[in-house]
Simulated scan of single mutants.
Amino acid sequence: MSQVANQHNYNLKDEIKAYWSARAETFDSQPGHEIFSEDERAAWHGLISRHLGAGDGRKALDLASGTGVVSHLLDDLGFNVTGMDWSEPMLARARAKARARGRTIRFLMGDAENTMELDGTYDVITNRHLVWTLVDPLCAFREWHRVLKPGGKVLIVDGDFVNPSPFAKLTGFLTKLASRLHIGKQPAHHGPSASLADTHKSILSRVYFSKGARADAVVDLLKQAGFSSITIDQDLRAINRAQRANFGFLKGLERATQHRYAICAVK
């Protein structure tokens, strides 16, 4: 009986948590996750500063912080950063990285859809590649609105990873072909195993944005959650250029043609 109950209680959110916990070991080896050059770091600093301004000690909540990549960028810019993730393996790596770099970033276990933080606590909220995984994004956005101070901002960096452009499909095909034929420089990083790739596909088919997290759909939900002064920024060229050296030419082109964006909204 208990085995049946446990199976019933293991829901989609548990699967997502387990998936990212399994990815923690190789997360920082992959371009697009960790930062591999000062040019890329500067490009991310530029994007964050463009929308959130200087840190000046303001309180920032970095949701789905993973190994702390964005949390460190915020810390670079002078924010007082709390990183929150619900994967303990990710948090362990984030804390170790902060200790190694002498950073005072606080990392907490928590759910982005139910942070358990007090009302009006933070000046800014950030997240990267979180929204597409949300089971209930409207609930999450209302939660983020609640924990922000009046005038506070949320900065979302995400994309539609379901509906590639025709050019992205072509470059994706050529990338896989070149890899199989061992043509050109192969990226020196470890991607997910075949079983984890299948798990990723299964999760993606069942989340709210299973048909693709388009920017306009995200904006509509942000408005419903009470946010205003919403801007969509699709100028991620500096980041794409910096990442291309580690992705390889074709993979870099594929990413550059995806529907990727930063959305900034105000409480």
Rank of each mutant, 00 (worst) to 15 (best):
Q3H: 08
A5I: 13
Q7W: 14
Q7D: 10
Q7G: 13
N11Q: 11
N11W: 06
L12T: 02
I16K: 01
Y19P: 02
S21M: 13
S21A: 12
F27V: 05
P31C: 03
P31G: 11
G32F: 00
E38K: 07
W44P: 02
W44S: 01
H45L: 04
L47A: 03
G53Y: 02
R58M: 10
R58G: 05
D62K: 04
A64Q: 08
S65C: 13
T67S: 14
G68C: 04
V69T: 11
V70K: 00
S71T: 00
H72W: 07
V81H: 04
G83P: 09
R95A: 09
R95P: 02
R101P: 01
R106V: 15
F107L: 11
L108A: 14
D111Y: 12
D111W: 05
N114V: 15
T115D: 04
M116P: 00
M116L: 12
E117C: 11
E117Y: 05
G120T: 14
T121A: 14
Y122S: 09
D123A: 09
N127A: 06
L130A: 14
V131K: 00
W132S: 04
T133R: 05
T133I: 05
L134T: 04
V135W: 06
C139R: 06
C139M: 15
R142H: 06
R142I: 08
H145Q: 15
G151V: 04
G152F: 01
K153N: 14
P164I: 08
P164G: 05
K169P: 04
K176M: 10
S179T: 13
S179N: 09
R180T: 07
R180L: 08
G184S: 13
Q186D: 08
H190T: 15
S193V: 07
D198H: 11
H200D: 12
S202D: 07
S202L: 14
R206W: 02
K211N: 15
G212R: 03
R214E: 15
D216R: 02
D220I: 04
D220A: 15
L222T: 13
I230R: 04
I232K: 08
Q234M: 11
D235A: 15
D235F: 13
I239F: 05
F247N: 00
G248P: 01
L250D: 03
K251N: 14
G252Q: 00
L253A: 02
R255Y: 14
R255W: 07
Q258I: 03
R260F: 12
A262R: 00
A265L: 08
